[in-house]
Design a protein around this nucleic acid. Structure first.
Lengths: 128, 128
DNA sequence: ATTAGCGTATTAGTGCACTAATACAGCATG
DNA sequence: CATGCTGTATTAGTGCACTAATACGCTAAT
């Protein structure tokens, strides 16, 4: 089975941010349940062949963002979220992605109605 | 009257990109009409207190993007009209980006109609 | 107390994007 | 030709984001 996190070293996205994005997505989709314990910085750093500081940076930022929290000592666990919070978190993820798409549409001078038409088609074409 | 271009040196956006964005905007809004001659790299570099190479970089990229074109020598002018030649390529870029957004929406179990609603909002927020 | 795990503050190294300095080639006009 | 403009290739400098190396303090268990 594939590891929980995968780092792509040649796509320009910094490793700590790839970690953050994937964990956030896994929390939003329920792959990581509330209360789940995260691997330690050294364990994860060994798995991903990264320095513990890189993991620490990602974890710290995730804690600052409210995605993770500390419990009894240094153990990092997935934060328990209300359903409404989970929903708003998912919507926030969507907005980020959609904003990039909308920005691209604007850069390409694609009319709004046509952008919407193409987007609808993409939604229909998306398969499981 | 204010100069045509204004560079903000402490907002993190590189100067050459500020130049590109402002010129593209002025073309889109008609402030720069098709066929209008752009100031020379040295003239503009003096006005903006930048190196001619920075202007040259912006101009070259704008030409590559199809916003400007060369005419009779080195004079750079605003390109006449966007034609349909690169249209299919632009739409293909859009489809790639939109497919990623649609895929995320599906992973997050966001209903189609709500995804479209959020996307429309993103399009509106992208203005200016 | 000792051991073994934990996270991270501090420091340093590295790569890259951006900008500038310099120098050169092309074109027009006298 | 000579002059004066044009754009830019080449090179170098600089700042910053990212990552790693090292070392330290902390907690828990024995």
């Amino acid at each position: 089975m594939p590891p929980l996190l995968v780092i792509d070293h040649h796509n320009g996205v910094p490793a700590y941010r790839q970690i953050m994005d994937q964990i956030k997505l896994q929390i939003a989709t329920g792959v990581l349940a509330a209360g789940a314990e995260m691997p330690s910085t050294r364990t994860l750093s060994a798995d991903l062949a990264l320095n513990p500081m890189t993991i620490s940076k990602a974890y710290s930022l995730l804690e600052h963002d409210g995605a993770l929290e500390r419990r009894r000592g240094q153990t990092l666990v997935v934060r328990a979220v209300k359903d409404a919070e989970g929903r708003s978190a998912r919507l926030e993820l969507l907005r980020t992605q959609f904003a990039a798409a909308a920005s691209l549409a604007r850069q390409l001078d694609i009319p709004k109605d046509e952008a919407i038409r193409i987007f609808k088609a993409s939604l229909d074409e998306t398969q499981s």
